[in-house]
Amino acid sequence: MTINLLFFTISIKKRKISLVEAVQEEMVEKLYDKNKEKQISIHRFM
């Protein structure tokens, strides 16, 4: 009889971001939403 065991340890740390990174992330999110709205409006007219 053979027993095979495999153990994983996962540790999660909260990442601290700088103000510059937060502003950049917000800009990216806004651009993504803007492009998504454009795609939806173009798709509606087809």
Rank of each mutant, 00 (worst) to 15 (best):
R15F: 01
E25S: 08
F45A: 08
T2D: 13
Q24E: 15
T9N: 12
K30A: 02
S18I: 00
I17E: 02
N35A: 13
F45D: 10
R44S: 08
H43V: 06
K30T: 03
D33N: 11
I17P: 01
H43N: 13
E37N: 14
M46T: 15
K36Q: 10
V28G: 11
E26Y: 07
R44F: 02
S18P: 00
S18C: 00
M27D: 09
L31N: 04
Q24C: 14
H43M: 07
K13Y: 10
H43K: 09
S11L: 06
M46A: 15
S11E: 10
T9Y: 12
E37C: 04
K36M: 03
Q24N: 12
M46C: 12
I40N: 03
F7V: 10
I12L: 04
A22W: 12
V20L: 07
L19R: 08
L6D: 11
L19K: 15
L6Q: 11
L6R: 05
I42E: 14
I17F: 02
K38N: 06
K36F: 04
M1E: 07
H43P: 01
E37W: 08
I3K: 00
T9I: 13
I3F: 03
R15I: 07
Q24L: 10
L6E: 11
K14I: 03
F8W: 04
K14W: 11
H43S: 14
M46D: 15
E26H: 06
S11F: 01
F8A: 07
K36C: 04
L5G: 05
L19F: 14
I17H: 01
F45V: 12
K38S: 03
K30W: 04
H43I: 12
R44G: 03
V23K: 00
S11Q: 11
V23T: 03
M27Y: 08
F8T: 11
E21W: 01
M1F: 08
I42T: 14
I42M: 09
N4Q: 07
I10D: 01
K14S: 15
H43A: 13
N35D: 15
K36P: 01
K36E: 13
E29R: 05
E26I: 07
M27W: 07
L5N: 15
R15W: 04
L6I: 10
V20Q: 08
K36S: 07
F8S: 04
K30V: 01
Q39E: 15
L31Y: 06
M46L: 15
E25I: 09
L31R: 08
E37R: 12
N35M: 13
E25K: 04
N4M: 06
S11M: 09
S18G: 04
L5V: 15
K14C: 14
I40T: 07
E25Q: 09
H43E: 14
K13I: 06
I12K: 00
L31F: 12
E29Q: 05
V20N: 07
E25P: 00
I42F: 12
F8L: 05
S41I: 06
I42P: 02
K16Y: 00
L19Y: 12
K13L: 10
F8E: 10
L5Q: 15
K36A: 13
I42N: 09
E21T: 14
N4L: 06
T2C: 09
L5H: 11
I10E: 02
I17N: 00
N35Q: 14
A22D: 03
F45C: 05
K30R: 07
R15H: 05
